[in-house]
Write a protein that binds this DNA or RNA. Structure first.
Length: 185
DNA sequence: TACTGGATTCACT
DNA sequence: GTGAATCCAGTAA
């Protein structure tokens, strides 16, 4: 029987692009909600990133790694990021997860019964998981937990060869699990 | 203090 | 495919 192990804090010292890719298939837990990460995006200090210009909001990208960075956007949605890069600026946006537990509660939060519409987008998963700005600045595995859960990866998603990589329109790198039904868009 | 636009989602055509 | 919803952070004055 394989054990669940938390991703150590030091796991996030690496570059955002590596962390974003490696986060695919990992398990995210908050309160009674959990899911498998199926889509991420890596931001560093390029033009498309908040890290391009360091401000009080984005400073966390430069000064920390392994911390939760939540910001509010378009007047209605939150986006969940995890800071990376020990000696530079970086963060990974969690864009979509496959729900594992707390699904009934997620349906209430999202006002839908459609399983595929619960967490298939950055704003959606924050609404489903009740993730808001109060989590901003907390450390990984303090309130939001990340597990290297190979058991679930093999049972629910498939082998790592199914991981797809795509260069987005602009600079950030997007990573997703090819063929997964819970991707955004 | 005022203005601008966004790492999105949803409804509608 | 297009546009509305909606508010906060960032910028300029």
């Amino acid at each position: 029987m394989e054990k669940f192990s938390l991703l150590p804090y030091s796991w996030f010292t690496r570059d955002a692009i590596k962390v974003a890719r490696d986060l695919l298939g990992k398990k995210i837990v908050y309160k009674n909600y959990s899911g498998i990460i199926v889509e991420t995006e890596a931001y560093t200090e390029d033009e498309a990133s908040h890290g391009h210009k360091i401000t009080p909001r984005s400073e966390i990208m430069l000064t920390t790694y392994g911390h939760i960075y939540v910001y509010f956007i378009y007047g209605m949605y939150h986006c969940l990021n995890i800071t990376t890069n020990k000696d530079s600026c970086g963060a990974v946006l969690i864009r979509a997860v496959e729900p594992l537990s707390g699904i009934q509660e997620m349906k209430k939060n999202r006002h839908t019964e459609n399983l595929h519409n619960l967490t298939s987008g950055p704003g959606k998963l924050c609404e489903a998981f009740e993730i808001g700005k109060k989590l901003n600045g907390t450390k990984v595995n303090e309130k939001i937990f990340l597990y290297d859960d190979r058991r679930i990866l093999s049972e629910n998603i498939g082998v790592s060869e199914r991981i797809g990589i795509e260069k987005a329109k602009h600079l950030p790198w997007r990573f997703f699990i090819r063929g997964n039904k819970f991707l955004s868009r």
